[in-house]
Write a protein that binds this DNA or RNA. Structure first.
Length: 681
DNA sequence: ATTAGGG
DNA sequence: CCCTAAT
């Protein structure tokens, strides 16, 4: 901290403070207060006086104020009296030095080890699952005998033909190609409906009606597609049990199949992943492995035809569908489906109109969950050549509704999940050269899915993945909120909306694949949304230091509690917990936070350090403001930027230095000065 | 239970 | 996609 600076600043600040009271420092004529939520334009910064050679010293004594009870005044005075008086000199230079030092390295080997441990656990788990399996067989049997009666010839026909088909060979032979599936003869709707009905019977005792019967064979034959095919291997799991049932020469197999079908959804969590079967060499596990593979084989044998049907169905539509009209075609195609999102069915039209699914900002693809199946299939069963992800294999038993994710499923989603595709448990699996690839079970994202995701984000932003899942992906059980978020992260990178961090060739290749697999319109949308909904966004749990707000940075609007409250309100609803105590506008937390000078540092433990506008308003250099205030994007506004998405870690150019940076505080919430300074290097 | 974030 | 930390 240069002394010169200090002196200099001390002469400056009185003036500044005076102007801060006006809530806005008029730096020059070009200052445009019009930018409410956003930041001050860079040019404004450029015009700013170079005030801020204040040392981090005074600013970052976070540890010292342990309680969050400090009064607002304290907060302010702390900021002002201390921070202001002290220097933050050298801050800029520090900040600009090390953009990436926060990256934490992790050993790959470690992950592998963890993986192996997991495998062992899983093996144990499987034996347990098998026991259950046996127990369930009885029930399954009864159900099948009682409830299962072929509805018409078609089903028998299906099954017979199924049983004759060569099918996929083994579970380990993942490379069951699409090529051998080219001769589809069975209407998908038939076989599928048949099985679905059965499933419903078993599970719901016929209480659910004939939802699937209403569909005419071929009704879904128009499937939009494009070059953007992601996935090849997708078998209709639903068909497997049925086929096995009918064709079963082997009672055991029949039972197994029935069991697999009836309790598949219920017992999903217990299914071992294919990987365990493949990789387990432990003698103890071999028995299990054998049984398992036996079962898999049984099931697999029966599947091909059904899949091939899909292929036929969608193949016609594959050819055309130009990029631009992509979404339109898509909508047309899906509009043929008789299905409508269940969650909307019961609602009056008027209500539907207001449903987010139908009103998304700007272009909305209006992809609804129920309609997905067809689309998904269309994409999935594209010719192999179109695959962008390389060979894939089926892993029927790998379906793994992720640990503990959608545990709490709504009744509706249950029904929906039975609808069709969604429950197909064939999880796509990448066969990479590395047999020990951690990412074993992957379910490729189809373009329609991506569009749904985008629509969801358009409506809910990037913080409410569960909501998006519920409303947009209610029928696809395999997509968890985390999956949605992950996909979004990938989309951001792929669309160029986010600077890609990794320089690895492998990653780049993957991104390219993603890019190729999606229409450009998708990425346009992604970029739009990226600017609209920053990601990563400031999260309530996040700890950030916002370094260096400039003089004229105005947080009004961006920081108001109301917006954040509305976000929390949603959480409150879904969690049943009360997170946002005070309604927007009624609490002191709703006060506007204003940063009119220098450097603002905030930390969660200073929640109550809100600065009250009007009373010496303005967050002085070094003041602490509530993370709550920043959580909803105020951080973005705090830093000068004409580009909205300013997120933790992002750089923003200023007139005062090459760039400033939002830094996320690592683990221990309390940070010593030296540590904080260290972070900035 | 849910999200962020890193691998 | 998996896992962990944090809330």
């Amino acid at each position: 901290m240069p002394r010169m600076d200090k002196l200099d600043r001390e002469t400056h600040f009185p003036k500044k403070f005076a102007s801060m009271k006006c809530q806005r420092v008029k730096v020059d004529d070009s200052f445009a207060p019009a930018l409410e939520d956003e930041a001050v334009e860079v040019q404004h910064l450029l015009a700013e006086p170079k005030t801020d050679h204040v040392s981090v010293d005074g600013v970052l004594c976070l540890g010292k104020e342990k309680s969050s009870k400090c009064s607002e005044t304290n907060g302010f005075s702390f900021g002002f009296n201390d921070g202001m008086r002290r220097n933050i000199g050298g801050l800029h230079s520090h900040i600009t030095q090390g953009p990436d030092d926060l990256d934490l390295g992790v050993l790959d080997g470690f992950l592998d080890e963890v993986d192996e441990v997991d495998d062992i656990h899983a093996a144990n788990d499987f034996s347990g699952a098998y026991e259950d399996f046996i127990l369930d067989v009885e029930l399954a049997q009864k159900v099948s005998y009682l409830d299962y009666t072929p509805r018409d010839g078609s089903r028998l026909r299906n099954s017979s033909s199924e049983s004759q088909s060569p099918g996929c060979s083994g579970s380990s032979n993942g490379a069951a190609g699409m090529s051998e599936l080219s001769t589809a003869t069975i209407p998908e709707s038939e076989s599928k409906n048949g099985w679905h009905n059965k499933t419903v019977k078993c599970k719901l005792r016929r209480s659910s009606g004939d939802k699937w019967n209403s569909q005419e064979p071929g009704e879904d034959s128009v499937c939009p597609t494009s070059d953007d095919i992601e996935d090849l291997d997708e078998l209709d799991d639903d068909a497997k049990p049925l086929i096995s049932l009918v064709s079963g020469k082997n009672a055991k197999k029949v039972v197994q199949a029935a069991k697999a079908g009836t309790s598949a959804r219920q017992k999903r969590l217990r299914k071992p992943t294919k990987r365990y079967i493949e990789e387990l060499s432990d003698p103890k596990s071999k028995q299990v492995m054998e049984r398992k593979s036996d079962l898999s084989a049984t099931l697999k044998d029966k599947r091909p035809k059904i899949r091939s049907h899909d292929e036929l169905h969608c193949g016609g539509a594959l050819a055309r569908t130009p990029k631009e009209s992509f979404s339109e075609n898509f909508n047309q195609a899906i509009s043929k489906g008789n299905d409508e999102p269940l969650h909307l069915r019961s609602k009056p039209v008027s209500e539907r109109r207001t449903n987010p699914s139908f009103i998304s900002k700007g272009r909305c693809w209006s992809v609804t969950s129920q309609n997905e199946p067809c689309q998904v299939r269309a994409v999935k069963f594209a010719p192999k050549e179109l695959s962008l992800t390389g060979p894939s294999a089926q892993a029927p038993f790998e379906s793994r509704p992720r640990r503990g994710r959608p545990k709490k499923s709504l009744p509706l989603s249950f029904l929906e999940s039975e609808d069709d595709e969604s429950e197909d448990d064939c999880v796509k699996k990448r066969i990479s050269k590395k047999s020990n690839d951690r990412r074993k079970h992957q379910r490729m994202w189809t373009t329609p899915e991506v569009m749904k995701l985008i629509d969801g984000i358009a409506q809910y932003g990037t913080g409410r993945w569960t909501d998006i899942k519920k409303l947009m992906f209610s029928s696809t059980a395999y997509r968890t909120p985390i999956d949605l978020r992950d996909k979004w992260r990938n989309l951001l990178r792929a669309s160029g909306a986010q600077k890609r961090k990794s320089n690895k060739k492998e990653d780049k290749e993957k991104l390219k694949d993603v890019v190729r697999s999606l229409p450009s319109s998708v990425f346009r949308r992604v970029r739009e949304l990226a600017s609209l909904h920053p990601y990563p966004r400031f999260s309530p749990g996040g700890r950030y230091i916002l370094i260096h707000c400039t003089n004229s940075t105005d947080l009004t609007g961006a920081c108001d509690r109301e917006r954040f409250c509305s976000l929390q309100g949603a959480c409150e609803q879904q969690n049943g917990r009360k997170k946002c105590e005070s309604p927007a506008g009624s609490s002191r937390e709703n006060k506007v936070v204003r940063a009119t000078s220098g450097c603002v540092v905030f930390c969660p433990q200073f929640e109550n350090n809100l600065v009250e506008p009007g009373s010496g308003s303005g967050v002085a250099t070094g003041s602490l403001i509530s993370w709550k205030s920043v959580a909803d994007g105020a951080g973005g506004a705090c830093v000068t930027s004409s580009k909205p998405p300013v997120t933790p870690g992002s750089k923003v150019k200023t007139a005062l230095g090459p760039a400033i940076r939002l830094i996320k505080i690592p683990k221990p919430p309390f940070l010593r000065e030296s540590e904080a300074i260290g972070l900035m290097k």
